[in-house]
Amino acid sequence: MTPKIISHLTLSCCLFLFWFPCVHSQMYPFPYRQLLDYNFYDRSCPRLLMIVRYNVWAALKNDTRMAASLLRMHFHDCIVDGCEGSVLLDDTKDFKGEKNAPPNRNSLRGFEVIDNIKTDLEIFCPSTVSCADILTLAAREAVSLSGGPFWNVPLGRRDGITASQKSAIEQIPSPIEPLQNITAKFTSKGLDIKDVVVLSGGHTLGFAQCFTFKRRLFNFEGSGNPDPALDSSVLTKLQSICPNQDAANSNLAPLDSSAVRFDNVYYTNLVNNAGLLESDQALVKDPNTATMVNLYSGNPFLFSQDFAASMMKLGNVGVLTGLNGQIRKRCGSVNY
Score class of each variant (00 low, 15 high):
residue 175 P to D: 05
residue 177 E to H: 03
residue 282 A to S: 15
residue 115 D to L: 13
residue 163 A to W: 02
residue 233 S to G: 09
residue 230 L to W: 03
residue 57 W to S: 14
residue 282 A to T: 04
residue 201 G to M: 01
residue 182 I to W: 01
residue 70 L to H: 06
residue 188 S to E: 12
residue 154 P to T: 10
residue 292 M to N: 02
residue 215 R to A: 15
residue 166 K to C: 09
residue 74 H to T: 07
residue 282 A to H: 02
residue 110 G to A: 14
residue 104 N to P: 05
residue 220 F to D: 07
residue 19 W to R: 10
residue 96 K to F: 10
residue 41 Y to W: 10
residue 94 D to A: 13
residue 39 N to V: 12
residue 220 F to Y: 15
residue 63 D to P: 02
residue 190 G to C: 06
residue 278 E to P: 06
residue 258 S to Q: 11
residue 173 P to K: 05
residue 105 R to T: 09
residue 219 N to A: 12
residue 213 F to L: 05
residue 224 G to N: 06
residue 292 M to T: 08
residue 154 P to D: 10
residue 186 F to T: 01
residue 210 C to A: 11
residue 171 Q to F: 15
residue 313 K to A: 14
residue 161 I to D: 08
residue 207 F to R: 04
residue 12 S to M: 13
residue 298 G to T: 11
residue 218 F to H: 08
residue 66 M to S: 11
residue 29 P to L: 06
residue 157 R to E: 08
residue 301 F to R: 10
residue 280 D to Y: 07
residue 49 L to A: 13
residue 131 C to Q: 00
residue 266 Y to D: 03
residue 21 P to E: 11
residue 295 L to K: 09
residue 238 L to P: 02
residue 99 K to Q: 12
residue 319 V to R: 00
residue 53 R to T: 13
residue 134 I to P: 01
residue 117 I to K: 02
residue 71 L to D: 06
residue 124 F to D: 00
residue 70 L to Y: 09
residue 289 T to E: 08
residue 313 K to E: 11
residue 174 S to P: 00
residue 157 R to W: 07
residue 147 G to F: 07
residue 334 V to I: 15
residue 198 V to M: 03
residue 166 K to R: 14
residue 4 K to V: 15
residue 42 D to Q: 15
residue 153 V to C: 13
residue 223 S to Q: 07
residue 110 G to Y: 02
residue 82 G to L: 07
residue 10 T to K: 11
residue 83 C to R: 00
residue 48 L to H: 05
residue 222 G to Q: 06
residue 177 E to W: 04
residue 69 S to D: 10
residue 98 E to A: 15
residue 34 Q to V: 14
residue 230 L to P: 03
residue 180 Q to G: 09
residue 15 L to M: 13
residue 181 N to A: 15
residue 171 Q to I: 08
residue 334 V to Y: 03
residue 331 C to G: 09
residue 65 R to Y: 07
residue 90 D to H: 12
residue 303 F to L: 12
residue 126 P to L: 12
residue 13 C to G: 08
residue 256 D to C: 13
residue 253 A to C: 03
residue 205 L to H: 00
residue 33 R to A: 14
residue 221 E to F: 11
residue 76 H to V: 06
residue 58 A to I: 10
residue 318 G to I: 07
residue 159 D to G: 05
residue 309 A to G: 07
residue 207 F to C: 01
residue 1 M to H: 11
residue 162 T to G: 11
residue 229 A to W: 04
residue 159 D to A: 13
residue 290 A to V: 11
residue 218 F to V: 10
residue 152 N to Y: 09
residue 163 A to H: 04
residue 35 L to C: 08
residue 216 R to P: 04
residue 220 F to T: 04
residue 200 S to N: 08
residue 60 L to D: 03
residue 40 F to I: 02
residue 93 K to Q: 10
residue 236 T to D: 05
residue 199 L to Q: 07
residue 227 D to N: 13
residue 196 V to R: 02
residue 228 P to A: 15
residue 208 A to M: 01
residue 129 V to F: 01
residue 103 P to Y: 08
residue 25 S to G: 06
residue 166 K to I: 14
residue 81 D to I: 08
residue 34 Q to R: 14
